[in-house]
Structures are given as structure tokens and as C-alpha cells.
Design a protein around this nucleic acid. Sequence first.
DNA 1: CGATTGCTTGATACCTCTCAACCCAGGTGG
DNA 2: CCACCTGGGTTGAGAGGTATCAAGCAATCG
Lengths: 233, 233
Amino acid sequence: MFPPSAISTSQPALAMLARTPWIREPVENGSEWESGLASTGTVMHFAQDQEIYGEGDDALTFFKVVSGVVRTCKFLADGRRQIDSFHIVGDVFGVEADAEHAFCAQAVCDCTVVAYRRRGLETAASTDADLSRHLFSHAMRTLSRAQDHALLLGRKSAIEKVAAFLVEWAAHSPGAVIVSLAMTRQDIADYLGLTIETVSRTLSHLERAAIIELSSARQIRLKDPAALRVLNS
Amino acid sequence: MFPPSAISTSQPALAMLARTPWIREPVENGSEWESGLASTGTVMHFAQDQEIYGEGDDALTFFKVVSGVVRTCKFLADGRRQIDSFHIVGDVFGVEADAEHAFCAQAVCDCTVVAYRRRGLETAASTDADLSRHLFSHAMRTLSRAQDHALLLGRKSAIEKVAAFLVEWAAHSPGAVIVSLAMTRQDIADYLGLTIETVSRTLSHLERAAIIELSSARQIRLKDPAALRVLNS
DNA sequence: CGATTGCTTGATACCTCTCAACCCAGGTGG
DNA sequence: CCACCTGGGTTGAGAGGTATCAAGCAATCG
């Protein structure tokens, strides 16, 4: 699961992360958690496309993104892939109810994560009602995203899917004129249930319609965000 | 939300339901819960296609199916529908993290449910670690189903989708030779991200391949369950 | 440089949708 | 009892959207 090279035992002071107040980063002077979680987070680095954990691996740890982007995905026997979610800074992933990870997690680009021991979370949650509420609400938010995603996959056309993706991804950098994509067309396609060709064609289509502008393949200017939102039905 | 006719104040002794030990049915002699939840479950009946709650309704209650089948679904602005899940006896639905229901819930056929006050669950969970663990695990199981569903919607062909549906639904009556469908072709189509015609054609196709036999439209004999499972990749 | 990788574009195939007709079972009313 | 109606389901013909196969382009990297 963890290539030795990926593990860093150092615990630098990390910038405050906004998303998950119920999980603190390891702090400079020790490994105690504000929430009372008596577990040490381990900072780890992964290179692009490196696997963080595989589908079916023992779920002994869960993770929080410090920098970069992580994707979680499932595969069919013949290799077809469905990306469930892209995780950005502050996002927690790999929390499971079962003993095994239901997904595989990979680095979309070079990234840094903190790994936490699952046992620590579970024992802490059993006595800390507040933490336990946070855990539940994390699960429910993840669920809600998965359900919206199912609506997209089951009932939206290619152009609606791509528009939804752009709107969702743009929300991560509010106010920005240009959206920077960390992932390849293949990632986008596997997230939206399309092929790379259809993604590419659809982006070109949106550009011809003067709704977006492809400064480069990964740099997209949203010229008409309202039009994109309309496509989200 | 609740058509007055649907509410029954009587609380008959209900058969023991296996699925959710963390939520008991109201018992004959009172309304106390074994789990310590000090809230009364209200037995309610709904006719086929009747709405139990709508998308965006205040999530003041959640439900457990006593008999019949319930579907939870979302809609796009133009009416396209995606069914998230079919709920059968013992299933809990309508548990939310937000103030509002994320879905709409409707009766697939005439059915009976018990409605529970959400507040009761929440206050009980705040002091009962075990209940709170059950709540979390319920959320995670629902999440896991939603994620498998997303893989199906995004990456499977029509025949694989239908096969998956039959296998999943057949699992509800293990050992049975004939699978009884409670839902219409439209329900199946909206669950699988297909049209009714494609569902119908695919079932005919499976029948011609001697994998199933349509005793009637809603009664399906699985002649070759192994073949169905193979189609699930 | 050549090789590689990611992306775009074109031609064509094919799967699923759309539109339409028809069938069938069940219910209703004459 | 039968004619009729209705709703759900099936089937066919054709259209259309997305996939597939293939070629070419640009940027990056040995």
C-alpha cells in the first residue's frame, strides 16, 4: 500500500485547513489532536498517478489532502473505470465502515496527504459525541455528493455533464477568471461517464459557442458562467 | 406532506424486522424504544404513487418500511427522473444531515411505513454511542450502495444494467425461483438511467437468450442466474 | 532531434432514444 | 355478457448521440 518512498516521518507545520474542523493537522510540537484524538497523522507524498491505496486494501488509515488533488475510483473487471470524486486540499477521503477500502485512491498530480489511523478515530468517536456527529455529517455530505453524481451520470447529456463539471470545479477557486484543471481528459471522462473524445469535442463545442475559452488544454476561461449554470438544468 | 388520509394513529404489533436493530418498531403496549429513543413511531399507509415527502421538504421525520416498496428519487428541471433506490421491508429512508430532504420519496405500490421524529433520533444519538455508531454505519452503507450505483450508471451497458438490477432485486427473496417486481418498467428505467423501451427490449433479449423467462411482465424466472452474474462483470 | 504523452479532430459504427403502432389485462358501464 | 377504455408493456423503424477507430498536432522529455 505505501511505497516506502512515499512516507515522510517529518511533521512540518501545515497551513490551517478549513474544511474539516473535526480533524486537526499534526502540529509542530507534538502529535495530540485538538479533538482529543490520540493518534499521529503521518505526512506522505505521492507522485502523479501513484496509488495511495487500492480497492480492497485493509482500511487501517484514512487521509486528508494537504496539497494536490486525489481521485477515488472503482473498476469493472475489464478495466472500465468510474471516478467517484476528486479530492482537494482539506478534503478527507478513505473513511470506511467496512474493513476494506471500497475504492482505490490515486494521486491526480503530485500531492501531499496526512494519513491517520482509523482506530484512533473510532475510539475517540465512541466517547466524543461531537466528533461522532462530525463523522456522521461527513458521511452524509459524501452521500449527498454521490447522489447528485448519480443523477448526472444517469440522466444528463454530454454537454450537461461537462458544464456541471466545470461549474463544480470552478467553485473550488471562487472568483477566479481562469479555471485550472489538475486532471487529464481521461480523468474527466471517467468522472462523467464519457470518453475522452466526447469530453474534448464538448469542450470545443462550448468554446465555439463562446461559453468558455481554452487558453490551454488545462486552463479554461469561463466567459459565460451563467450559460454553464443554465446547462445544469 | 402527509395527506391526512394516510395517517394511522393505531400502532398494531408489527412483525420483527431484521434490517435495523437500532430502530425498533412501536410495540403494542407503548411507544418506548428499546434503544432508549423517546419518540413515537407513527404508522402510516400510502397508496401506489402517493408522495411520502418531496424534495426540499423539511426533514422532520424519517421512515422505515413495514410493507410494500418505496422509491427515493431526484428530478431535473425538465422532469427527467433518477431513482436512487428502492426500499423494501426493514429499510430506513429519509435520514438527512441537512434540514431538508434531498430526495422525494414515493410509494411504488401500496405500502405501510413508520414515521419517526428526527429530533428524537438526534438527541438519543448524542448520548448513545452505540446508536450513533449505527447511524454512521447506516450512512456508510447507503453511501456504498450509491457509489456502486454510480459505477453502473456511468460505465455499464443496458444489458449489464438490467442484469445487475435483476440480481440485486432477486437477492431480496433468496432462493425464490420467480422474482416478483413491484415496480413498473418506467421505475426500472429511471433507476438504471435507461428508457422503458430499452428495458423492455433488453428483458426480451435476455429471454431469447434463455437467461430469464417472463412468466408475466412482473414475474421473472431466472433460468440462468450465473449468466446474469457474469454480465455484472 | 525522435519518442512519448496528452489532446483534438474526422469518419464511421453502433447503441440507445424517439416516435409510433400495437397488444394485453383489468375495470367499467351499458 | 360484451364493448369500450385505460394503463402498462412490447415491438418496429428511424434518428441521434456517443463510442470507436484513426490520424494529426503540440508540448515535453530524454
